[in-house]
Nucleic acid binder design. Sequence first.
DNA 1: TTAGGGTTAG
Length: 765
Amino acid sequence: MSPSFPALLSAASRARTLRQLKQLHGKALHHAFHGRLNHWVAVLVARCARLRAPLSYARPLFDSAPRPNAHAFTSMLKYYSQVGAAHGEALALLSRMRDLGVPPDAFAFPFLVKNCSGGSVGSMHAHVMKLGHGADQYVRNAIMDAYARQGRMEVSRKLFDEISETTVVDWNTMVSGYWKWGQEAEARRMFDAMPERNIISWTAMVSGYSKVGEVGKARRTFDSMPERSVVSWNAMLSGYVQNGLAEEALKLFAQMMDAGVRPDETTWVTVVSACSSKGDLALAESLVGFLEERGMKLNCFVKTAMVDMYAKCGNLARARQIFGEMGNRNSVSWNAMISGYARVGNLAASRELFDTMPERNVVSWNSMISGYVQNGKWTTAIELFKSMSRMKDVRADEVTMVSIISACGHLGALETGRWVVDFVAQNKIELSISGYNALIFMYSRCGCMEDAERIFQEMPARDIISYNSLITGFATHGHGIEALELMKKMMEEGIEPDRITFIGVLTACSHAGLAAEGREVFGSIENPTVDHYACMVDLLGRAGQLDAAKKLMDDMPMEPHAGVYGALLNACRIHRRHDLGEHAAGKLFMLEPENAGNYVLLANIYASAGRWDDVENIRQMMRERGVNKMTGYSWVESGGQVHHFMAGDQSHPRIKDIYKVLEEYGRKMRGLGYSADKSWSLRDVEEEEKEEMVGTHSEKLAIGFALLVTEPGTVVRVVKNLRICGDCHVAIKLISQLSGRELLVRDNNRFHCFRDGECSCQDFW
DNA sequence: TTAGGGTTAG
């Protein structure tokens, strides 16, 4: 005997798996529905929402109803809101209901409102009022919540104030709305004024305080709660984790166990992530042992957190093993693996996962892109971003832009950078502090200090990174006074300078020749690090006080590192102190035997003194030690493209044009009385070892310039990564004179602007 | 159906 229709209905509404549901549906299809198919579909779709059935099953099911009723619509809406479908889907359903003449019931509106974006809350609100559902407590609450989620707290508050009889849910909605937008005072006022509070109100306060970094207040609230649920414990735990207090979180976890509270899977996720932020492998192992002892069945979230934990602790093999054993991975699991490999520099493994994963979301793209950026593969990052922006199913967000803006900054790719800024505006990507900070970094690196300052002024709020980025920018460009003033301003705003701030300010003083100010700043640093000493040696050295620099080094409480000796050696080159230079170079040859730059610096010191035998000795030393010649290259941005040039490089598509221009310039130079033939005769360099030492710099630079002058009308920007030698200096001056263009040249992290053969910075040599 | 807690990217 086949089951009756009501029995089938009741079984369907209790189905525990999708398989059961499908079987029941199969049975039901043999029945005559007698006009009850619409009702049947409604029940099934409702169950699909609960069981997270795939859309490929749920939607055709819904469409099989001849005339879906309000219940079926609501269930489909609920389904969409659970899978996070675009609001457009919900709106399409709504208009279909209108066509069919089925008015949506009050149950439908909370789901309709849930995925509203932008201005559509307002029109949905109007629709609700028109249909007379405005007084329904659920509908009303959903609308208040939607406004609150968009930050329109005044509208939300107005609706709240108009309610004649509020429920505790209304109050809780307001409290969490205020917290979402960091309005601690308002949230607190609401909480204090509540006629009654439940566990949710208290928990919202705990997580709210945690969110704004007030862990102390969160803990006091937590301690005064009349009762706690596992959710409340989880809120406090994650409060500690989010604020970097992993130790405290683990202590609280122990208390939680003592109190006999049964942890749920969210607890495990939080505790595991506490372990990963500590980067403590031993702790991680003991936690896993703890979970295994209890025979815990771990869900996808927990396992993903474990993958992330092992990846962050550097045990990629174990992370990969857990990842491999996971039955159902979601995109977060893949992403954790991708960023794990990227973090240790294994970009090939990252990319392989990225290319093979079934569904990429914005975080997958961001992980891959930022992996490239963090490992110095800036051009690849930008290329990947360009292919991302051609995809239809993914939209770049602020995180994407932070990586890309930063990549442009590293490259000094201003034209690409400006294109990215346009992209942000056109795609209406809202920037937060980190987005603005990235822009400050980019403009500074590209030499546009006016733009960097403008962004700094325009941004709604600033943090220490904002100040540090701008200070470092000032330092790079020799604006010592501005850097000092900015540090003063940040202290007035109550932000204490950190290690990076002092490095920036000291560098700024050094480049601007503000020796006295630099000394004063250095004196104010509580515990100077070895980097601060390096800045100070650089400052004293550039100012010509080489013996004072040497004395400072002798008195250092720690061993000087290569940076300190490098600063000394550079100062010796500027002030031609051979004795001290030899000493510094000797140390550097021990500390960094592979760094060709040090050998070249010393050779240049000898060359300037005409000690050619010693120059030859250095070259001999490099050969014996197998030190490669400079692998650095110069790169030039032109027409939005970054061109790389290495010594003897023939690979550029317009290499012939470039040679032609170079030869022309060579002729002009000779006509001006310069005998600098070797810098221009590119073809000889590989054979003629003699040029290797002095010729490579200017040669690469010359290729870059040559390209620029073959592209009339482009902005001339040359970004160079290595110290510029004397020949380069001549080359730059000449080309700026002959081309009649402004040249922006980066030398050793500092920009120099040349016009008509002159540099605007007086101390360019 | 509404309100509180979780994993990935800078």
